[in-house]
Design a binder for these strands. Structure first.
Lengths: 192, 192, 192, 192
DNA sequence: GATGAATGAGTGTTCATTCAT
DNA sequence: CATGAATGAACACTCATTCAT
């Protein structure tokens, strides 16, 4: 949590530099000084905006998660049927990852690092509350299988990550048709 | 030309120490000397068994993947219907992850680290050939949706990881019933 | 943009420590940490002033060579006859080596180490240009034998090193008379 | 001083490997294991033939010096006039260095390393006794300047090293004529 | 005699962080 | 607010040497 002060451009540069470097050379190799150099500032300056390296990395993660949460809730229409809403959210998420593969990749690396333990899970879940709400509604309406929330997301959203990962890492190409099919598969998995 | 012989227990200890430490403190923090200390040997000794740190980590990963591949092919019966085989494999994998959460978690961390790029993907895929074969058979028999292999696995196997991850990281409990349901969901996702 | 300024005394101490240690324990044994300890600074600090160990050693060499070049050109009088100039230079060099046996010994060790290959030979030769000029003048005036510059210096200056080396290493004593004779020998070697 | 045992070929290989490696990568970088690998034997085997690394390097040096001493005394004819003998020796030495630039370069590196202090100077000088004898005869016969032996060799033999070094390191070419002249210069330097 | 395994001590270098300016 | 200088601690790795076989 940065203590917002004068120079927002520095903080933005820092955010971008962190994501870029972690994607390029990995978590372990992304040192404070390298990030600082990438952002065009002094290593010491980082400690004005963030408590320490951990804080920088965690804050960057939370920031991206917030962005994703915001993105999938754009044009969110609670009056629609459950399937429509989920499809909307699903495509929004897919789109976000496609447009920001670097942000997405950062979260993937982060989520499998020990830093993950330092994140306030409640704060993250907050960003995704509306989606949880819709899933619960689907269960109540006997449209969706009555299983734990974790299992549902494992079939709805986790595959997006897997597919995106394959796309990013293995240069695997996706047609519009197969994206459409993918959502159908997600829906088939959870619907009653 | 006689000589002192290589000590198999040392290499085993090294394997276990690597997995344990990476799980406990993460990839980045797992230094060669810490791994050596955990294994009860000198850091220098590691370089007798492995070319360098990278080789140690990659070899450990490949070893686990090989184990998983072996595990899911136990009692593999190609004469069975596609669904039965997949269910068998699915449960085998679930069981393996449940019994070796540390091995599994290591692969998860590894797969999202920059080391991942160093693995010979073909070698890994080899271990999972029979499964790929069954999926293809399902497609030919018009039992399974005709989409890319990456997408199919994203819905069949990736959710296992997500669910297991939740179990490991969030102490989320699973009933036999919900495991059963989970496979049904995987199958519903991919079946025609 | 204020900052802490670089400490000139540190770099001087580093220079002296490098020379001293290389003379005492040799090139191979002079590790970065030993040099740092001798200079009274942290090993890490060296990397603020020099790119790496190689840079430290090469820079130290070039610095000494520059000093020698400067020393032998003091009171250099181009209007004098060739022999007088050479005698002046010869004695200046002899004096420098006598007064700075450690600097001189450093260059001797360096010149026979693999680091030698990393030095910009042109840059070094620049420091000795006037001397080369005088030798050429002597050749033109038919006072000095018309042979390659390398051979001339091999007889004029290289013996100084040999004699000085003997003095430093073997505690061999030199009288003023024998120094005088030594120059005569150098001159006899090259004069026509 | 190796304790000559069964396998002389191993010791020869060791000698050649040591010289080769020191020339290629320098003194500091020439580790025992690298030398062993170059010689095609185990590092441990070196300790059968030599007390330690130092012993290996020093013995190799002494061996080469002995060879040089032997070489310059070939066809040595004590009945000849002083100048003829010196010329003979001078050319023999020049020839040896030309034919064994690697051996020569090893001695140059060694003589400027701290190992040099470990050599029994008397033992080396022994190999060159006849030459010293001739120089003394020249002084007695008032043919050669009456100065210390170190100064005489500094002008007779040291320039050979300087010229050879230039040849080896700087690809500087020598004609037969200039070799002839070089000896004349050496002689001019020391003759009365 | 000869080996590869094994290691404590050390290598050059980078780290996250602090501090005087 | 922002900096480059400074560092103790750690890094991955190699060293010379010993030892059981």
């Amino acid at each position: 949590m940065p203590m917002r002060t004068k120079d927002d451009t520095k903080q933005d540069a820092l955010f971008e530099a962190t994501v870029k470097l972690v994607n390029e050379i990995g978590f372990a190799a992304s040192s404070v000084s390298k990030i600082a150099k990438e952002a065009g500032i002094s290593p010491a300056t980082i400690y004005i905006y963030y408590k320490n390296k951990e804080d920088l990395l965690v804050s960057t993660y939370v920031e991206i998660k917030k962005n994703i949460g915001r993105a999938i809730q754009e044009d969110f229409d609670d009056t629609q049927p459950v399937r429509n809403i989920l499809k909307h959210v699903w495509f929004r998420m897919f789109e976000y990852i496609s447009q920001h593969p670097d942000y997405f990749q950062y979260t993937e690396q982060f989520a499998n690092s020990p830093y993950q333990a330092l994140v306030d899970k409640k704060e993250i879940e907050k960003f995704f509350d509306p989606v949880i709400h819709v899933l619960n509604r689907g269960i109540e309406q006997k449209i969706i299988k009555n299983v734990d929330f974790h299992i549902l997301t494992a079939f709805v959203f986790y595959p997006i990550l897997a597919i995106s990962n394959a796309r990013v890492c293995l240069d695997f190409e996706l047609t519009d048709q197969s994206i459409e099919t993918s959502f159908t598969m997600a829906w088939d998995a959870i619907r009653l």
